[in-house]
Amino acid sequence: MRREVPLLITAIVGLTLIVVYFVPHPPFSDLRDLFSDWFGVIAAFAIYLGILSLLKINVDKVYRKKSGWGFSIVTIMGFLLFVSVGLYEGSDFGEYGTSYYYLYDRIYYPLMATMFAILAFFIGSASYRAFRARNLEATVLLLAAFFVMLGRVPIGYYLTSWLPEGFRMGSLADWIMDYPQTAGQRAVMIGIALGIVSTSLRVILGIERTFLGGE
């Protein structure tokens, strides 16, 4: 029963959502709304599950003095600080001038911005070490990157503004983005979509059962 009931729920919900795509009328549309509401409740509970998981892993790491346990203390303290301040301030927690707003503005924002900004340095370093014209494919990729990177910023315009419209760096970058790039993306997206359809059908029909866990 522990496996059959979840499989049955998955099959009923999955098949109903497929049917409602083609027949968006009652009773199927009502069922879609009902399942969506249930999903919202489950998603909200998943947040608590995430919190418990975060605390369990980090408390365990500190307790056992595993490598990097000091960072876990920072994580736990940060979590407790944000949650307690947020709960204390109630529904106005995000308003300008509140303590939560201060924490968000002075701690969370700079930390997140720093994480993202580090990318710029790694891109610079990687472009120097790895972006080599080793063969034809790599050369094509390199040339595309060259034109798009310069064409997407005003410097590209200044370098080629003397050329007629359509031959400037910006136009070339637009062409690369609109045609070869889009064609490549489309192929990848179609491949992913087919994979999703096949996996979804396997899950709905009960062939794929790894999501149930266990053996």
Partner: peptide, 18 residues
């Protein structure tokens, strides 16, 4: 302006590396 200079520096590194 900042982004333009940053892109130009990355392009410079790509050319130099090659």
């Amino acid at each position: 302006f900042s982004q333009g200079i940053a892109h130009a520096v990355v392009i410079f590194f790509v050319i130099l590396g090659n």
